[in-house]
Write a protein that binds this DNA or RNA. Sequence first.
RNA 1: GGGCCCGUGGCCUAGCCAGGAUAAGGCGGCGGCCUCCUAAGCCGCAGAUCCCCGGUUCGAAUCCGGGCGGGCCCGCCA
Length: 624
Amino acid sequence: MSIRRAIEEAKEALRRAGVREPKVVPTKSLAFGVVTSTSVLEEARERGLDALAHAEAVSERARGHLGGLLADVRAATPGYVNFFPDWWRFSESVIRGVLEDVRSFLYEGLGEGEVVIEHTSVNPNKALHVGHARNVCIGDTISRLMTKAGRNVRVINYVDDSGAQMAELLLGFAELGFDLNPPMGMRFDEYCGDMVYVEVNRRAKVDPEIEVKRRKVAKELEDRGSEFFRLSRDIALRVLRDQLRTCHRLGARYDMLVRESDVVVSGLWDEAFTRLKVSGAIYLANRGSKAGCWVADLSGHPVLSKEGDEVLVKSDGSTTYVARDIAFALWKLGESRTELRFTLWEVQNGRITYISSEDGIPARLGPPRLVITVVDSRQKRPQEVVRYALSRIGVGADRYVHYSYEPVLLSKRSASMLGAEAEGEAVQMSGREGIYFKVEEVLNELVEVAVRETSARRPEWSKEKVREIAEAIAIGAFRYGVLKVDSDRQIVFDIEESLKLEGDTGPYLQYSAVRAKKILLKAEEIGIEPSPTPSGDLTDAEMRLVREISIVPLTIEDVVRTLRIRSLVTQARTLATVFNEFYESCPVIGGGSNASFRLGLVASYLRVQEELMETLGVPVLDEL
RNA sequence: GGGCCCGUGGCCUAGCCAGGAUAAGGCGGCGGCCUCCUAAGCCGCAGAUCCCCGGUUCGAAUCCGGGCGGGCCCGCCA
């Protein structure tokens, strides 16, 4: 059982001592016990009592009602009421809880229901760069967490294969003479992004003819029966296939790939359009700069109303991106009558991925509890327009969440490596100008660093083994590095900084887990059995480890509620630190009468840490 | 002009949503620890006007107001 039981016991004791609505939280330091309450402090203020005296009186009364996991209660200045555990029982309860069933220890009572998560959604004209990786890592971590928490999760990757960027890419093949096959050894997505797309944009700057040709290409692409359209679909799929290799390498998995070109013909927009008209959410502008357009009426919105109404259908009859996103949101919410059609894309480790397809089988989602769309903060406004439009139609706007995160920039130093001179401290990445670091190149460099480090430490390992471990280290370091910064803070990516494997990094978690595994292995050889029961008084390090394990369920509950996945990183890191300190001072093998209990503690640590690492997508290793 | 995000030791980053007890960790610097379960680790030292001003409170890095600085958004682009 987690620390929740100690909290409940403390609350009950306080209630019996006359505190009406006791608030009890874990302490910051064991010097103050395991759990503490400031309710007495608040009560004293309300009633004008001396806080410390009141706390002492309450503590006296509460003491008689202790039992179970708590052994003592003491008042502390200026009016805290601190609860001290019976360490024997407390540790036994925690360790037993973890060893019996770590899943229920961590995730029990977190609710259920279906959750739809859209993430990645990179235009299929280039390879993923580190900015895209932030989206992938955040979305994938949320999906992992929700799955562990018992939700039925569906992950969607929205593939915009019909936008202007696609036309620009096509232009390179159709007009600039680029071969459809990349040079030997080059990936197709990198070829398209690094060479074709960048070249088109470079020429467009100096040659006005290019823009004329781009329009022509874009126009031709609208004819779905054309050879050109088929070529475009084909290229998008080839790029997508490569992009997904990178996503898979990062550990991300998808249930549905939805192509915009399929959404366009599905009739989804027609349905949304009708419903928007019926509900009065949109109107046909007949004067002003937007005359001839269907626009969303934002006049009732507290903030958006200040910026003018949003065009959804242009005067030439075509839809805007926001319009299509409203239609798709309707589908994700399971609120559309229109169905999208899907066909099998691939099966990986038993997980089936479908892709939208005109000749597929029609599918609709049952209305999920929650739809999370992971999109960077620059799209806050359009996302709010989507949400507002949904609310005007009267469908689950409260179930529609834009998970926003700040973009990834490049450090001055790293940008200059790409030939971009920075004015400030950081520079924005640009696909058009080739100013970006690709996920694959960063991962490959990380692997090289990890190979060097690993082969230096384990000279007896085979090349294959070193490489395999190095790959896992690289993935762990990369995901950790991306996830450790809070979503509403910019990341200033620096390639040299990102190649570090010491300190506050992914390998720190992997290393501490390996240490734990090695102890378990050795103990098994010798024949030591883990036990949840201490053999005597606990050391400080043991108490801290028990305590840290006991609060992990609270952290997880908090993150499931708030989606602030950054806290999971902090929790995993803190847990590893506390374990490493335990490791230094508490020998297990050769721990004498303490061996069994310590082994139980190590086993508990490992099970909990593995769960956290799996959620974060930091690979768990047997050795490193 | 309106809106959103950020501002914590030299550098990077927690803590802020739910105000409490010495502001935590990493990098970098200095000094220690491997006949003992993996030193990608651990311990110690130095280093902070928690951007500024005001307010609320017994108590503010945290909440509120006003500034300043940096980033972003406000297209018949996506």
